[in-house]
Design a protein around this nucleic acid. Structure first.
Lengths: 407, 407
DNA sequence: AATGTTTTTCTCGACAGTCGAGAAAATAAA
DNA sequence: TTTATTTTCTCGACTGTCGAGAAAAACATT
């Protein structure tokens, strides 16, 4: 059912527009804001005045008067308006980043995982580190407005609960437990590849904007590693990208396929993940319980063998490509044609998987109809994950900026 | 990028709300409208006055004064405000329905398909029939505001172009050619099962409304017949259902599966469609060009055999169920858990497919994680297709009501 | 028949938001 | 110092929503 509308919502929407432009296109003056948003000059005045009053934005004092006339005064977000902490959970470490409202990295901290953490105490351990991070930069806990957490695995779409992850398996982790004692941030939990897709969506949006072309209606990021992650960004009717991270790695590839670390049989990951590739390469029975961790050096060795002509190694990579191709083809049958961006440590074996990938893609009617999707390779996944964190968390702060400062 | 907002858009949105309530919950009085929409009494007055002025709604004269107090006056849509024609294209006939803005069926006309129609001249033939329909009810062509067309097959998401259909195959049909000479309707082309899913979404929405429960976040309709159609409805952030009809029937089932009538190999439909089932049952080589049409009586005979114990017939239905189950499981890996509504002529063989279906579903990690989806059987597909036409076309007319009457 | 009760609908003034036009401000050039 | 130019701000008009209370239209009571 439709929701009722009101003039206040109009203001909220248009304030959001102003903040979004400010975030994406650096400091902007009154006139530039008016041009970019399409709002009238008078409206921009009203909105910037309100945002200034709430100390969300501020005027940049330095003015390099370019030409004649009254010099422009630029607005920027007030960096101290609020802070976010991005936490990236990976199999071997935890990376914490403290970032201000302007998007500037203030502090970073890495913890190597000590063996197996308790899923139960994990949230409180995380909270401790957040406290430490705040102390180091002498911030009060109340100034942390958003904690954005990412992990590989499956995430509850409504609550900050990690349902399945390579680290904790089926033991779910509820991150709302980090709240309390002055720390009351909004908590955003995302699948890691979802963040990559979100960051890519922002990038292609900007490119389309600069070139004056239409942004693509959808795109996806496919992260290759020990497991397989997929993030899809879709342009919704309002012109915003909606990003989701379905459980692609555990989509059924073959009913009589290999045993997956999730306990099911025939998942894509069980053939295309690192452990699946190794299992095929060394002709280990496919119902063998897969290795929990494979050093990348092992994969490099295998790839070297394959490139040197080892048939069984080549076969393993091709089977992986085939599984990915068939999966992507199936995804394209259920969605529309979209470019695919490969990321993750596995992309360095892309050459070995390419033949299988093409074969698998070609088997889908959807691909044969609409043609091969654009395929891109992205090497720096880490940067995109961080960009995705910022995009998500800062966007969230923008949307809640006025209401949050009213308290 | 976000869109700018304004007070006019607020009015448009709220007018839409009023019209939507009027459509869904019969004639409503001023107070009822205010209650249902959440708008203030004053706003309802302003909106109804405007809609009356534009002759979109009118007061119902008859007043049965229930109790004390000033009697309520009910508003209804003005039936003569505009008309829509729904065209259902099926393999053996064309069904035209002329409906007024109030949703009342005025005239219906059926044409049996004469052999194979020309794809090129099809739009103009359709236009001729529309003209005939208008004459019979002495309406001018200009009063037809929407033509809503449905077919099985694949539809362009942006234009009224049929990309692939069982009737015309890969020869695409552009329905915008029916316009001209006073006939300038908006043309809505939908996959048939998309309409079913849309109608179901409206039904469950109403049920949830009456029971005071939350509507399901998603649902899908799976139409079983000569081909396989899928429609998915998703609750979007604004609370509206977005409906899509992906090419599920031609999603890859098995890389070395049967030849599909689309020319690809291993599509779901090539195993689970009627022709696929027959091919398996009679052990015809799976690369045989499939029959263009299978009389339902043939399927009934086969089903009777299966129920009598014919192993090969049983096997064929079970394989069909398996293909559907695996496909649905894969879909659920890429979406969230959602109830499945089976429709179409094939549901009468549901009992024979059930075992395979369950087996196929159970192979997906997503189903094992989240549990089996609710499975429902809907017998009257025709009614749902018509309801979907009305829902889509009348909703469209509501949204364009004010602007259209301003000309 | 006149008056009160009750319920519904309508109207009025206040408030929030946007917009266009033009005033005011601030600077470089003349 | 004056003029030209560019940017920013302000004012009044317009559209929209809302709450409160007036007006309307019926039944009930005296």
């Amino acid at each position: 059912m439709l929701a009722k509308s009101s003039t206040e919502i109009v203001r909220q929407q248009n304030s959001g527009l102003v903040l979004a432009q400010l975030r994406r296109h650096g400091p902007l003056s009154h006139t530039e804001l008016s041009d970019r948003t399409g709002l009238s000059s008078a409206t921009v005045s009203a909105i910037t005045a309100e945002l200034e009053r709430h100390q969300v934005i501020e005027r940049q004092e330095q003015a390099p008067p370019a030409g004649r006339g009254r010099p422009r005064v630029s607005f920027t977000q007030r960096r101290e308006c609020g802070y976010l902490i991005a936490v990236r959970i990976s199999s071997d470490q935890l990376e914490y980043s403290l970032v201000d409202y302007g998007g500037t990295l203030i502090d970073r901290l890495e913890e190597t995982r000590r063996g197996q953490d308790e899923a139960r105490s994990f949230a409180s351990a995380l909270r401790n580190t957040i406290e430490r991070l705040c102390e180091r930069s002498s911030l009060s806990l109340g100034e942390i407005r958003v904690v954005s957490i990412s992990s590989k695995g499956l995430v509850d779409p409504l609550q900050p609960v990690l349902l399945w992850s390579p680290v904790f398996g089926d033991v779910s982790v509820d991150f709302s437990a980090i709240r309390g004692g002055g720390l009351e941030p909004d908590i955003l939990l995302s699948n890691e590849t979802r963040l990559v897709a979100g960051a890519l969506a922002r990038i292609v949006e900007r490119q389309a904007d600069e070139r004056g072309t239409l942004p693509p209606r959808a795109l996806c990021a496919l992260s290759l590693g020990h497991g397989i992650g997929l993030g899809i960004a879709h342009l919704d009717p309002s012109g915003e990208y909606q990003v989701a991270a379905p459980d692609f790695g555990h989509m059924l590839h073959l009913a009589n396929g290999g045993l997956c670390r999730c306990g099911s049989i025939g998942c894509i990951e069980a053939t295309a993940g690192f452990y699946g590739i190794l299992r095929t390469a060394f002709e280990v029975p496919s119902d063998t319980i897969p290795a929990r961790f494979v050093p990348i050096i092992e994969m490099e060795k295998l790839a070297a063998n394959a490139r040197r002509g080892d048939r069984q190694a080549q076969f393993a990579f091709r089977q992986a490509g085939l599984a990915l191709g068939q999966g992507l083809g199936r995804m394209q049958s259920l969605n529309e044609k979209m470019p695919v961006y490969f990321t993750g440590p596995g992309v360095r074996f892309y050459d070995l998987m390419e033949r299988g990938l093409m074969e698998g893609l070609g088997q889908s009617r959807a691909i044969r109809r609409e043609g091969m999707p654009e395929l891109h390779i992205i090497l720096d996944e880490t940067a995109l994950v961080f960009a995705g964190h910022l995009d998500l968390a800062l966007g969230h702060m923008d949307r809640t900026a006025i209401s949050a400062s009213q308290e």
